[in-house]
Design a protein around this nucleic acid. Structure first.
Lengths: 197, 197, 197, 197
DNA sequence: CATGAATGAGTCTTCATTCAT
DNA sequence: AATGAATGAAGACTCATTCAT
C-alpha cells in the first residue's frame, strides 16, 4: 500500500481552496465568508478545508503571503535595471494589471475587517513593508537622477505613490463604472503628475 | 403625570452611543465590535443600547447618515459661491480636517466589512452620491472657467478627486507616520497637480 | 394635601388592564402577549402596569380568580334549589353563554402554556376544584332522584360533564365555523345523552 | 473517501431529538422548553440540535407532521372497509390508545401556545383537515346505513366526535385521576350515545 | 399616581473547529 | 487523504421589571 503523497496534487488542491477563499472573501467579506461557503465554492468538505489550513485566518494569511511573495519576486527581477523612473512606471502598470481581477479590490476591503488578529495585521504590515522597501530605493535613485521631484523625501513620495494605487483599488471596489481598464492610463498620468519635478 | 420625555437628554444619550460605537468600530472592526463592547465603551447596559437602536447595524447606519447629512449641509452652504476652484480646494481642506479624527479612517475600513447588508450598502452609496452630486457641478464650473483641466470629463475628474481623499484616509489608517496634520499640505498640492490644466 | 385615593377609579383602571390582558393573552398566547403589548392595548405606560400588578403572571392570576369567583357565586346562588337536573342544565347554559365571548377559548389555551408556574397551576386547580365541588352535590342529588344515570359514580360523571364543556371551548377555538350560538343546543342535547339513565 | 452518510443513523438521531422535544414540550410548554433543555434531554450539544433542525419551531413541526402522517396512514389503511360504524369505533379506540402516552395531552396544550407562528398554525390546521377528511366520508356512510343519527349533518357530527376525543385528551392533561386506561370504555360509550340515532 | 428610560438575565442561533470513520 | 456529523463558545437581541422624576 504505497501512499503516493503526490505533492503536486496537494499543492493544486491547496491552491483551489485559496482561490475559492479569495472569491468568497471578496464577495462576502471576511466574517461573511463562512468556512462552509468557502468549502462549497471549493467543492470540498469542511474536513478537507481544515486538513489544508489549521484555521480560517490561515487561508487569508496564505493569500496575503502569496501576494507578498509576488511583490518580492517582482522587485527581485527588477534588481539591476538602470532606469529608476521606468521601474516606478512599471510598478504602476503592475498595479493596474493586478486590479483587473475584480476580486482584488473586494479582498483588500475584506482584510481590513480582521486587523484585530495580530497575525493578519503582521502579514499586512509585512506586505506593506516589502512593497515600500521595494519601491524606496528606486524612488531615491530616481530623485538622484533628477527624474522625480525632490521637494519631498523619498519616503513620503513612496507613501503617496502607494496612496494612489490603494485609492485606485478602492475606487474600483466602490464605483462600478471605474474600471482598471478604463482608468489605467489616467493612473499613469496622475502618478506622473505626482512625481514630476 | 410628569412626562420624562426630555428630547435633549434622549438625543445626548443617543449621541453618546453613536460616539462609543464609532470608537469601537474604528478600533475593532464591525464584527469585532460586539454590542457588549460598545455598551462597555458607552457605559450603558445592553438593554439601553437596544432601547436606542433596534439593531447593531442601525448604529452604523446612524453614523453614516450623520456624515451624509454633514456633507449635504456643507454643499448647501457652498451654494452661491463664485469661485468654483476655491470650493474644490475647500473641500480638500474639509477632507483633511475630517481625517484629523483618527477614528474616521478605521471606521471607513470597518464599514466595508458589512457591505453585504443591503441597508448599509445603500447608505454608503447614498453617501457617495451626495458627495459626488455636491462636487460635480463645481468641477464642471471650474472647467468652464478654465480653472481645471478639460481633457477629462468632470465626472471622471470627480472620481479621481474622491480617489485622492479616500486614499488619503486609507493611508492614515495603515501608516502610523502618515497623519492628516503632516500630509494635509501635500494632499492640497497633489489635488492641485491632478486638476491643473 | 388630602390624597383622594378614589378606590373606584383604582378598581376601574385595574379592570381595564385585566381586560386588555385577556384580549392579548387570547390573541397572542401568554408568552406572545408581552407586557408592552398589554400596555398598548390598555393605553397605559409600562410603569402603570406594574403599579397595579407586581408581575405579568399576576394579571393572569387575576383573570383566573375572577372566573373562579364567578363560578363560586353561581353555585352559591343555586344553593337551595330543588331540581338538581335543572341546575346541571343551567350550568350547561352558563358554559354556552360564557363561550360566546370569543376570547375565552383563546385565553384557556394561553393559560396551559404557563402551567410551569406553580401559582398559576394552583389557581387553575382551584378553579377546577370550585367547579367540581359546585357540580358534584347536584350530580349526586340528581342520581338520587333518578334523573341521571347511576352506572357511573357522580365523580366520574362530573368529570365527563366538564370534559364536554371544556371540549366545547376547545372546538370553538380551533374551528371557526363552530360557534357557541350555533352549537349550544347540541351541547345541551349531548349532555342530556351523556347523563340520561 | 469513506462517506459517513448512514441515513439510518441520521434518522435515529433525528427521532431521538424529536422524542426529547416531545417530552420537554409536554412537560414545560413551548416557551418553557428551551433548546438547552431539549438538548439536555436528548443528551446532545446545542450545535447538534441545529444540525438537525434549523429552528426550535421546526422540531415542533416535525412532531405535528409525524402525527398527521400517522393519521393519513390510518385512514389509508381503512379504505375499503365495509362497516362504517366500526371504522368510527376503531377511530375512538385509536384515540384512546394514543392518549395512553401521557405526553400527548401536554404536547397538545403546548402547541396552542405557538399558534402565532403561521407555519405551526398551518401544520395544525392541516392535521385537523386530514382527520376531518378521514372521518367525514365514514360518518356520511354510517348515516346512509342508518348506523348513526341523521338529525345533524355529517360535518357537525364529525366536529362533535372530534370535540369528544380532544376533550378526552384535555381531561387527561388536567385531571390526574382521569386516565386513558380507566376512561377509555366510557369514551366509547359516550361516543355511542352521541352518535346513536 | 403615572410614566417610560434603563437594566441585565436569559434565549435562540451561528460557525469555526475536532475527530471517528 | 477526505469526509461531514458533532460540538460549544460566543453573540445579537427580547422582555419583565425597577426606579427616578
Amino acid at each position: 500500500m504505497a501512499r503516493t503523497v503526490d505533492p503536486a496534487r496537494h499543492a493544486a488542491r491547496r491552491l483551489g481552496i485559496v482561490d475559492a477563499a479569495l472569491t468568497c472573501f471578496a464577495r462576502l467579506g471576511y466574517d461573511g465568508a463562512t468556512t462552509a461557503a468557502i468549502c462549497r465554492e471549493a467543492a470540498i468538505g469542511s474536513g478537507t478545508f481544515f486538513h489544508y489550513f489549521p484555521t480560517k485566518a490561515d487561508v487569508l494569511l496564505a493569500i496575503l503571503e502569496l501576494g507578498t511573495a509576488e511583490t518580492r519576486e517582482w522587485f527581485a527581477a527588477a534588481a539591476g535595471r538602470a532606469d529608476a523612473r521606468a521601474v516606478l512606471a512599471d510598478h504602476i502598470d503592475r498595479a493596474v494589471a493586478e486590479a483587473v481581477d475584480p476580486r482584488i479590490a473586494g479582498f483588500v476591503r475584506a482584510v481590513s475587517a480582521v486587523l484585530g488578529d495580530p497575525r493578519i495585521a503582521a502579514a499586512l504590515a509585512e506586505d506593506e513593508r516589502v512593497l515600500r522597501d521595494g519601491l524606496l530605493p528606486w524612488m531615491a535613485r530616481a530623485q538622484d537622477a533628477g527624474q522625480v521631484r525632490t521637494d519631498l523625501l523619498a519616503e513620503r513620495l513612496t507613501s503617496w505613490l502607494m496612496l494612489l494605487t490603494d485609492g485606485f483599488l478602492g475606487r474600483i471596489a466602490s464605483e462600478p463604472a471605474f474600471t482598471a481598464a478604463a482608468e489605467g492610463d489616467t493612473l499613469r498620468d496622475v502618478a506622473q503628475r505626482l512625481l514630476a519635478p
